[in-house]
């Protein structure tokens, strides 16, 4: 099968690549574009480790074909920090020890980013509901929830 040409925007940068039609967006990001910050935990959309934001919506990159990325805006973990500064969500995850092994962390940060863009002041319950598509096996979620609450407060403060 011949490869297809994809022209997309990843973390604000216009990106072109060739892919086989059966390749997932996750595979293209990781293997062709070297963006291995997006992780694969299950390949069935059940763990959220591959969470990316496509046209503003949180999505599992394993459930999107690479060819579908054509013409879309994609955000990955590699685009979250500023060149000289972490994003407040990243900073709060670190300060709250909200990660242990760290494999779920990129997905959780993308999910948190999508949440706080939609709801800047979520309750603990709203956070738990929103993050239920992101499995973490290390933390019991306690410190993650606290980090998200702190990041939300910081971001609200920054905007006020």
């Amino acid at each position: 099968m011949t490869k297809q040409h994809v022209l997309t925007t990843i973390n604000g940068e216009q990106t072109e690549f060739l892919c086989e039609p059966q390749q997932s967006l996750l595979g293209a990001l990781r293997e062709d574009l070297g963006l291995t910050g997006t992780k694969e935990g299950c390949g069935t959309g059940d763990c959220g480790a591959c969470s990316v934001i496509v046209n503003g919506r949180l999505t599992c990159a394993c459930l999107v074909l690479a060819v579908e990325a054509d013409g879309q805006q994609i955000e990955t973990i590699e685009g979250v920090a500023e060149p000289q500064a972490l994003h407040p969500i990243q900073q709060q995850f670190l300060e709250h020890a909200a990660l242990q092994c760290g494999i779920c962390t990129p997905g959780l940060i993308m999910a948190t980013k999508a949440l706080l863009e939609k709801n800047p002041d979520p309750s603990e319950h709203e956070i738990r509901y929103w993050l239920s598509g992101n499995l973490c096996r290390c933390t019991g979620y306690d410190k993650i929830v606290r980090a998200v609450l702190a990041a939300a407060a910081q971001l609200r403060g920054a905007e006020a």
Binding site: G45, G48, S51, V54, R57, L58, T59, C60, L63, V64, A111, A114, L115, W130, S132, G133, N134
Partner: peptide, 9 residues
């Protein structure tokens, strides 16, 4: 239907 991630698709 599914997680937030799945809802987006």
């Amino acid at each position: 239907i599914g997680s937030v991630q799945v809802q987006g698709r």
